[in-house]
Design a binder for these strands. Structure first.
Lengths: 168, 168
DNA sequence: TTCTTAATTAGTAAATATTCCTATTTATCG
DNA sequence: CGATAAATAGGAATATTTACTAATTAAGAA
């Protein structure tokens, strides 16, 4: 799920422009955190971003990661994704896309859905308020959880539907 | 957003049948929790369910509410909804519907979207796994947050996009 | 009905996740 | 270079969710 160096620098460039336009400081922490999120397309959670950024900047605090990703979300530089019950995740991909969430392992996968993007907003929804963004989430078993591995007890059986196991 | 007594008893009836078919116990706690979630359509969070159920059963524990709603979700009796950053919420409405989430006040409103329900699943998504459920989320400002009230500083300004304010 | 038993719960402790507070550092601009 | 408002680190404080265990109880058998 790695992005190419070319993609990353293009994204970073846009990022720096956005920060400047917003009139806020371009700090090494912000750059490192953005680059970490932009590096791959696999929806890292806060903990992961924190851990990886620390390898470059050993002194960054967890608070800074929360604060910074929240800022990026407000600026529209990253999308927030809720893999339903697991940790809050961020995605540097801000082009219109949607998510497939595996209900077993929690994998969150992007896909495009042009037919949906161009679908009209139903009156039932516009009556509720001004729709500013739209997002589809499919839930199901991902390819690696679905058919073959009838085994796999513990590890891959993380709950990801926002609940936990009702103890037997 | 109240449901009528008629709706509620019909739902409760189905609920009791489902519990029996699942071969698990029909306890007063489970009944009270289900009825509380079925009572309205406004997506209560755990805390709210807990508080209201306690008025009927003063001894229920928070753990029981978590456990029980998780069980219901597994049985398909409630849907889990992530209003993006706020508390996990549950919805007893299991008929196909979608959500409008207010990015200011966190209100989570249902709407139907037949055109989407009948849209074909794109190949890009079915390649990722077997799609078992599909859900649309619109984000924006709800009717009461949108135009008029230019005031309202603190209270109604809860962040609901999974982030928090970057302190100035 | 009473008995038996495995499931369920209450209550509390513990683990996670997120946010707040403040002294210190630093990017930006003149 | 300064000045200064913004941003950060570090740790404390909250909030949320889960785990543990003794006691209770629903459901089925007798």
């Amino acid at each position: 799920m790695k992005r190419t160096p070319g993609e990353i620098s293009k994204m970073t460039e846009r990022f720096e422009g956005a920060i400047r336009r917003a009139g806020i400081k371009l700090t090494p922490q912000r750059i490192a955190i953005y680059r970490e999120v932009a590096r791959t397309a696999d929806h890292p959670d806060i903990e992961t971003v924190f851990r990886n950024v620390r390898r470059k900047l050993p002194s960054v605090s967890l608070d800074t990661v929360y604060r910074t990703l929240g800022l990026f979300a407000d600026l529209g530089l990253v999308m927030t994704v809720r893999p339903l019950g697991y940790r809050l995740r961020f995605d540097a991909n801000t082009s219109p896309h949607h998510h497939f969430v595996c209900t077993r392992c929690g994998a969150t996968l992007d896909f495009e859905y042009r037919e949906f993007d161009t679908l009209r907003i139903p009156a039932a929804a516009s009556a509720l308020g001004r729709v500013e963004s739209r997002h589809v989430e499919f839930r199901g078993l991902c390819a690696s959880c679905a058919p073959g591995p009838a085994r796999s007890k513990g590890k891959s059986a993380k709950r990801t539907n926002g609940t936990r196991s009702h103890r037997p």
